[in-house]
Design a binder for these strands. Sequence first.
DNA 1: GTTGCAATTGATAATGAGAATCATTATAGT
DNA 2: ACTATAATGATTCTCATTATCAATTGCAAC
Lengths: 146, 146
Amino acid sequence: MAQTNLERQVETRLREHEIRLTEGRRTLIQALGKADGPKSAADLHSRLGDQVPLSSIYRSLSVFEDAGVVSPHYSTKGVTRYELAEWLTGHHHHLVCVNCGVVEDIEIDDRLETQLEAIVEEIGRDVSFAPVDHALEIDGNCRQCQ
Amino acid sequence: MAQTNLERQVETRLREHEIRLTEGRRTLIQALGKADGPKSAADLHSRLGDQVPLSSIYRSLSVFEDAGVVSPHYSTKGVTRYELAEWLTGHHHHLVCVNCGVVEDIEIDDRLETQLEAIVEEIGRDVSFAPVDHALEIDGNCRQCQ
DNA sequence: GTTGCAATTGATAATGAGAATCATTATAGT
DNA sequence: ACTATAATGATTCTCATTATCAATTGCAAC
């Protein structure tokens, strides 16, 4: 259900941008929809086997990024990870494993998010900067690395 | 003064790790000490001209990272920026320009930092994760891009 | 259902950030 | 001053990612 709704939302966005939704791209969206955090092209490729060649994964992620369907996440040297954009999944933050680099999404409850936004707004006022987004990253050891 | 103290602190740390402090490396530390935020190897190289070749910059930054003298910062595809480690500069956060990618350091006052730490601790408890570090990034447009 | 256009493909070559190489040089300890 | 070995600097290599190109395909219009 949520998955099908996801595909419909993505279809609509891509159509608005006059971008085609091919089978390979649909497969990519499904894989990102099932992921528990940002995934690199290599992660996605190993998960999907030969369904979508690596070159198509890179290219489609780039097209999706331009269309605002995915967001890049940078936490490892030389590797970019992608996740579905927040308008599709909701605002969230990241846990980053300091050992292996895996990134996990976390949603925090409204009370904490409100507090965090207040902090961000106050910082913005202090340095005359209008925040358009914010990201809280918490570094530690993931379950596999503990 | 602060600069000289910085060099002394770095010297001590490198000596502990049996790493040599060459003139090129001293120049790099001085440049990082003057920087207002994380800098890439290319940034540092263009700033330093021929004083330190690009290959030496990459290599020294890597050595410094292993020794805990600098920390990497990832906010742009395919580019790593480095800044002095927090034990040298103090805990701080980053403003990232969504247009040009420049990263600026910001320190926030103790009251806000305390609030932020409480949020991080509570999130960590919620997801059974012991935070070792946290980073708040605020995205917007830098003064040049406004 | 058919057609046309241009987006997209997939394998491969090219690119750029960063790592490795090697003969020579320089640091730091004695 | 001597010595061991880390570090150098220019160049080559590696890897994640982008560009290329002839062939294929998605999708809107008819």
